[in-house]
Design a binder for these strands. Structure first.
Lengths: 299, 299
DNA sequence: ACCCCTTGATCACATAACAAGATAGCTTAC
DNA sequence: GTAAGCTATCTTGTTATGTGATCAAGGGGT
């Protein structure tokens, strides 16, 4: 059984004529006859009544119901890949907590505004877990810190954060080792890459352990820091954006520690669904405008 | 896009191997490659990730959902015509009121007992209306009185009733014309063919008009006749079956009026769905056993 | 009642699509 | 490093498909 035959059958059902069906579906009448005949031979049932006016038989109508299902599924599938519509698509995005909180909202908003039909699913987790989910096909794309070691993956640097040390008091240089040993650090919850950076910073300063508090929200973190509760490490642009609301000061960290690149990772572009391709388009646009804004705003 | 290709794609999705898929679906590996490749070219998307272990890409999984729908619809359709299952079938039967009341119950019961999955739909109406519905494809088969004049239809005589005149008092001959003129006749509701027979009978006896009451049920009719309310005309076997419950007597009518043949009409057998074919089987069996019983019982 | 027009079936032929086998290139595991 | 297993590619013979021409049948109009 071929989809082409079913389409011709539906044509016959609708037009009640082999000739008209042939014209409508851009072929010739003998072709319609042949296809219908082949269907009939295959199923061992007469599908079309040719005596008098052409009309589907009971069996033909029964088959037509299934043909309808098959063809509509086919058309949906084709339009999903070839058409401009992304309706019915699903897009599963994996991202780190910090990325989700700090970078994704405008991107998701822009994408959802442009393609509201896409079923967006967001999963958060640490980089290692995200990569695993990507390789297992549980998500379609991920935002992760640092380059993926996996080959055969499409990688794209989308965000480049410059981390700064945030405190309630002005700083000219890194706090002393003694200060750091007794200080409290505020971070997003476990698994966050910024938190790892804090630990990296502490190690860099010769401090092996410090108190690190988990806070769920950016506002909470900045508020606590402003209240003198401790330090935190955040992207410079984020801090600058909220600096007018909190009495906080920041210190540029050494480059190797400060620099945090967030990569967008997915399978090769050739494997992308249109929905994913559109998402990447949106992502690039938003990321580009973000860069402009932060560059002009930060200058 | 071809169903065959989709089936191979599903095979690859399940086995994770082109070779295994080829074996499972009784073809060769190069065929699987070719089909998948053609699908990919057609949709402009890579569906299978061949680097490392073979696995569907995001796009492949998206297509697989639609493939699932198409293939299951296809399989259902095929099994409807080729398999032994009639699940999901619909059977629309048209029948006259009297046939529905007197003959169909055992047939429908037998059929429904044997094929409970079939969605049975029964429509009642007079012969002309039924024939119209059959030609319009609104029902799959009908039980009608008398031969269909329409050609190209499958006709089968299934019931042959011998009508008798029923009264509360014993009769040796037809009532007199005077008696008939004042008498009341009881019949099923308008459109019933037995009612037409009553009118035919009256015309035969030279009576142009008589009072005819519509009663909805057989029991009501026989009860009223037994109470001396009037006459009715019913099949001999029906009357004999109920004779022990009512004090009624019957008179054999002249052959041309007494003989009422009920025909089963449907499109040509070649156009029958399996459900319809099974119904005809059941119908013949029940009709045959009915004949035996009535013959032995009536002798 | 006749003729004409339209419709679907059939046939022959050219082309395209397909399945199968052999081989080459690549990856993975030992 | 080698061997085994996998997929891509190529070739070939066969099948399937699309097309146009022709034939038979039915319906409508005169």
């Amino acid at each position: 059984m071929q989809l082409k035959s079913l389409r011709l059958l539906m044509g016959v059902a609708e037009t009640g004529s082999f000739v008209a069906t042939a014209q409508r579906l851009h072929t010739v009448q003998s072709n319609v006859t042949a296809h219908i005949k082949k269907l009939e031979d295959e199923l061992g049932v007469q599908l079309v009544n040719r005596s008098g006016h052409v009309r589907l038989t009971t069996a033909g109508m029964a088959l037509a119901e299934y043909a309808e299902r098959m063809l509509s599924a086919h058309d949906e599938a084709v339009s999903l890949f070839k058409g401009d519509k992304v309706a019915g698509s699903r897009l599963r995005i994996g991202a780190m907590e910090t990325t989700t909180a700090l970078r994704l909202p405008p991107i998701l908003a822009a994408f959802h505004g442009a393609y509201p039909e896409v079923d967006l699913q967001l999963q958060t987790g640490p980089t290692a877990s995200l990569v695993e989910r990507l390789t297992e096909g549980l998500v379609d794309c991920v935002f992760v810190a640092g380059r993926l070691d996996h080959p055969h993956y499409h990688l794209e640097k989308v965000f480049s954060e410059e981390l700064v040390l945030v405190s309630s008091t002005p700083m000219l240089a890194m706090p002393s080792t003694e200060e750091l040993l007794t200080a409290t650090f505020l971070a997003f919850r476990q698994g966050c890459s910024y938190r790892q950076r804090i630990e990296l910073l502490l190690a860099y300063c010769g401090v092996s352990a410090a108190r690190i508090f988990d806070l769920g929200s950016l506002d909470a973190m900045l508020g606590c820091v402003a209240a003198g509760m401790g330090y935190t490490v955040l992207p410079r642009t984020t801090v600058e954006a909220h600096q007018h609301r909190f009495g906080i000061h920041c210190l540029v960290l050494p480059a190797p520690i400060a620099q945090v690149d967030t990569y967008f990772a997915a399978a090769q572009p050739a494997t992308w669904t249109p929905a994913l391709a559109r998402f990447v388009d949106t992502l690039r646009q938003v990321a580009a405008s973000d860069t402009c804004r932060s560059e002009s705003g930060g200058g």
